[in-house]
Amino acid sequence: MNTKRIIPCLDVKDGRVVKGINFLELCDAGDPVKQAQYYDAQGADEIIYLDITASHEKRDTMIDVVRRTASAIMTPITVGGGVRTVNDAKALLENGADKVAINTAAIDRPELISELAEKFGSQAVCVAVDARQEKMYWRVFTVGGRKASRWTVNDWVIEAEHRGAGEILLTSMDRDGTRKGYDIALTQMVSRAVNIPVIASGGCGSMAHMAHALLEGKADAVLAASIFHYRETTIQETKQYLEKRNINVRIES
């Protein structure tokens, strides 16, 4: 069987890392490629870049970042943020990205999922879902968590799979940034609702949180940012921890 994936996420703005590793050994700590190389050397199973560049004109900087990353490391790269059209996705995939993550654009026009899947294959189409808990269910939010959509999370992930999504990147808005752990109930619900892989995200503050999301949450992968950026642990150490708990992870000897 394939292994559970451990995925560090880097927030990139105008081609520079804004939330990333906090230390000085790197000669240019703001360079996303340097940080990706650092995680690659630790055995990251994938790298996710989240492009938070505000202006559309500067989007080309992300293409350059992806190009330079794919020239430096042989590790899968996913890019999310700002992908609105088939052409946006094409530019990233032709320059070394393996997957694009779409969020707001997919809610605005669900056909985009099918168009991307048809052109690039489902394996290249990751639907990012920002979820917030309401009374009886979770609701999908867009525009970086600012706008409520008409979709419940359960209905939306089923719709996304039906339209050809190859993966769900599931972020709990309630947990994001709290370091209190992933939302296990949410993760479990989505993992059961679909047959495509699910990446749990939002709230990771410890290695134990990752184990919970993978075991109880039934996630196929976990995304984490600050725990790696602040070097509270390394990917290697995380994997050794998970392996001791009988979680199938990739450890190269």
């Binding site: 394939n2 292994t3 994936r5 190859g166 495509i196 892989p197 196929d220």
Partner: peptide
């Protein structure tokens, strides 16, 4: 087989 996660995405 439809009972699996499809696509297979990851290291094997």
């Amino acid at each position: 087989n439809a009972a699996l996660r499809i696509p297979q995405l990851g290291w094997n």
